[in-house]
Design a protein around this nucleic acid. Structure first.
Lengths: 342, 342
DNA sequence: CACACTCCCTAAACCGTTTCAGTCCAGTCA
DNA sequence: TGACTGGACTGAAACGGTTTAGGGAGTGTG
């Protein structure tokens, strides 16, 4: 049984002031004596009142909701530790601005572009976070046209004039390949993520370049859908070649596929790392739970999410477009990488 | 460059009707001729107008947002495939009602109870989904007091008068233990989840009861925080006992801990399933990626989320409280369970 | 003493919808 | 013909805040 909703008017009456005064107090704006201010807060506390964000939004002040749409098949989403960790990072900074996160799962970037427009026109969000950029992503044009504050998580080459936050995938891939080469590997493969994704293309190009620069004897790349099954299938196909033509090291684009690869190697009677070295990406707890433990290119996804959120607030408050690189993933060697058996 | 926002007034003007008429048309309410209706939609299409949800909410119609607060340490969240899959199930039904999900990570259920109140008072959400019930959970009283439409994901014994959706954990645990006993195991352990959680208590009680009923020679239970590290630690401690006193089968409360357990067994030179059988819970893709593959108590988390969302809509539209069991997890035997070595 | 200048605070307009009491009009019936 | 009915549509009042022009009181100045 709720008593009829308490509004700003009740608070004003109780404090013996006008609605406007209450509004000023709650927005920490000048023009009120300290005594009045206190009286207002006291009244609000007694009545258990907090301003209605809906009314506040309608009246034209800021919108304290930020949007995040994710476009991946539901089946794969659950398994990617990345997103939840990213979201928790985003939340950590939203919370201190008392903002909320509007989360939406979509089936295509086109749908997401439409969603963005309706969010923005309907003033449902004050800004949005865009992830998983494709080449020629329609969201870039949509956000630019709407003049909507967004932060694009992806390399500036993919995100047009939008403010972007990105990890240097090219350098990370290069470092991964160099590391394996330094261990003595000459035949290296990479099991990539979704081909449609921009950062997959970046990594693919960087891998090619690194392989060329190091004059590797063999370099393979395949793209997948990030699922464990795909990772297993890709690994199986890479490892069926006879020993001299087989890769001696495989780099994966996430850790799920690396775990799957580990399992396939065992199934094929190959020992890791003696017969084949495995290197994961997006280092989550999972990499420390396997036998052997998985070496990985690890980065701080939580902190990444926080950076993105902070950058979005910058854009919302009118900061011009910019490009914000975050620290490159660093190599964390564990038990799955070693020099190849001679 | 956005042109000044287009509102219902513009649409009304263009269609040559009043604002009220446009409202009627867009809410599919009677009182308008077919011709007028068409004219209105046409005008709206030309202007690219959609009603502002903010104004709509303020004007007192329904709120098309549902809340979900999750209370687990950020570090663990990322790894639990459960939540993202659950969320994707929830979304699948929200989408067809064109609703959105307001997601919030909180640090305690007390904080969540407060959040619930501010969400409800501020009309930010039309209802909420409550997960991870504790014993004597403060959210029950909060939701009851506010008269807020919520669905509680948890056993009715924990959720007071709230509408609940729940899996029959007791039966599932019993089935798991029976299965292992049927294979010939007489010494069985369980590595449970967080002790504070209601369903952990349910499972613990059911395990005790099953062990008693089957007159097992040994039964162990520990609670953890669901993390891989904890799972590993618990497993290590269970398996250090000398052979005759050691459990020959271990049941885990999620799959991350089971994976960790598998790795610990290998580290201790024990073979799975010959020396020890392992049974996971919350069957995700992960269980098929290990060597051996993990047997699990599996259930359809996506469908579960969808059920919960549908139930919430029922509550929002005034359906009285109820208790909705969903299918009990079923045993999916794979490579990690077998009769004990004699 | 008149004037300007501050400082607090109020009143009213406004945000973009929904809702509801009416108005208007064509049609039916006695 | 006049009374009544019902359908189509309008106008204005909410909804709960923010914003801003301006009013009144107090202080310093010439």
């Amino acid at each position: 049984m709720t008593t009829s909703r308490v509004t700003i008017k009740d608070v004003a009456a109780r404090a013996g002031v006008s609605k406007g005064a209450v509004s000023l107090a709650f927005n920490h704006k000048p023009g009120l004596s300290e005594a009045t201010r206190d009286r207002i807060f006291e009244a609000a506390r007694e009545l258990g009142w907090a301003p209605s964000t809906t009314a506040r939004t309608l009246a034209g002040s800021r919108v304290d909701v930020v949007g995040l749409a994710i476009c991946r098949p539901a089946r794969l989403l659950g398994l990617e530790p990345f997103y939840m960790e990213f979201v928790s990072g985003v939340e950590s900074v939203l919370i201190e601005r008392s903002c909320s996160l509007l989360l939406r799962l979509v089936r295509s970037v086109e749908e997401e572009a439409g969603l963005l427009e309706s969010w923005w026109r309907g003033r449902q969000v004050g800004g949005s976070i865009l992830v998983d950029f494709r080449l020629d992503d329609p969201r870039v044009a949509a956000a630019e046209r709407l003049g909507m504050p967004v932060v694009a998580v992806g390399h500036p080459s993919l995100t047009g004039s939008l403010t972007s936050v990105w990890t240097d995938d090219a350098t990370a891939v290069t470092e991964a390949v160099r590391y394996l080469a330094a261990l003595g590997h000459r035949r290296i493969a990479r099991v990539g993520g979704a081909a449609a994704l921009g950062h997959t293309a970046t990594r693919t190009a960087a891998f090619d370049e690194a392989a060329r620069a190091l004059e590797l004897a063999g370099a393979w790349q395949v793209t997948t859908d990030y699922s464990g099954e795909s990772g297993a299938r890709a690994t199986r196909s890479l490892l069926t070649a006879a020993a001299p033509d087989r890769p001696t090291a495989i780099v994966y684009d996430n850790d799920i596929m690396a775990v799957a690869g580990l399992s396939v190697a065992a199934e094929m009677g190959l020992s890791v790392p003696a017969d084949v070295s495995l290197l994961a990406w997006d280092d989550s707890q999972l990499c420390r739970l396997t036998r052997p433990t998985l070496s990985a290119m690890s980065h701080d996804v939580h902190g990444f999410g926080a950076d993105v959120a902070r950058t979005l607030f910058g854009v919302i408050t009118g900061k011009g477009p910019g490009s914000h690189p975050v620290p490159t993933p660093v190599l964390t060697p564990r038990g799955s990488t070693a020099p190849p058996r001679v």
